[in-house]
């Protein structure tokens, strides 16, 4: 996955069965972002693999003031990369 400067990880162990997972996102390299992120903390959130898209979450984070509008794509991509990896691991385990 491309190094976007935004790190996304599982916030808790993935049992491979629940459609909703917990993720944690934080900025590792602020220089990669166009806008100044609001916080330098880690943002934990739940994500429904079946019903939601990474872009939904990225837009909500912008609307909640965590990121500047100009960074919605890079935040969305960072989440998408991690979600794709989780889904790939699940398919491999199945």
């Amino acid at each position: 996955a491309e190094d976007t400067g935004v790190r996304v990880e599982l916030a808790e162990e993935d049992n491979g069965r629940k459609s909703t997972i917990a993720l944690r996102l934080w900025v590792e390299d602020p220089k990669k972002l166009k806008g100044k992120p609001k916080d330098n903390g880690a943002i934990e959130f739940t994500f429904d693999l079946e019903k939601e898209t990474p872009e939904d979450v990225a837009q909500e984070m912008v609307e909640s003031g965590f990121f500047h509008e100009s960074d919605v794509k890079i935040v969305g991509k960072s989440i998408r990369d991690r979600v794709a990896l989780i889904q790939w691991r699940r398919s491999r385990i199945r």
Binding site: W26, D29, G41, A42, I43, E44, F45, E60
Partner: peptide, 27 residues
């Protein structure tokens, strides 16, 4: 605003907590 919670109008809860020291990249 660390350890803060923000609930988006769509209902999603964002919980902000400090990034674990071990996860911060070396400058």
């Amino acid at each position: 605003s660390l350890n803060a919670q923000v609930v988006h109008s769509a209902g999603r809860r964002f919980i902000v907590s400090p990034v674990p020291e071990s996860r911060l990249r070396e400058p």
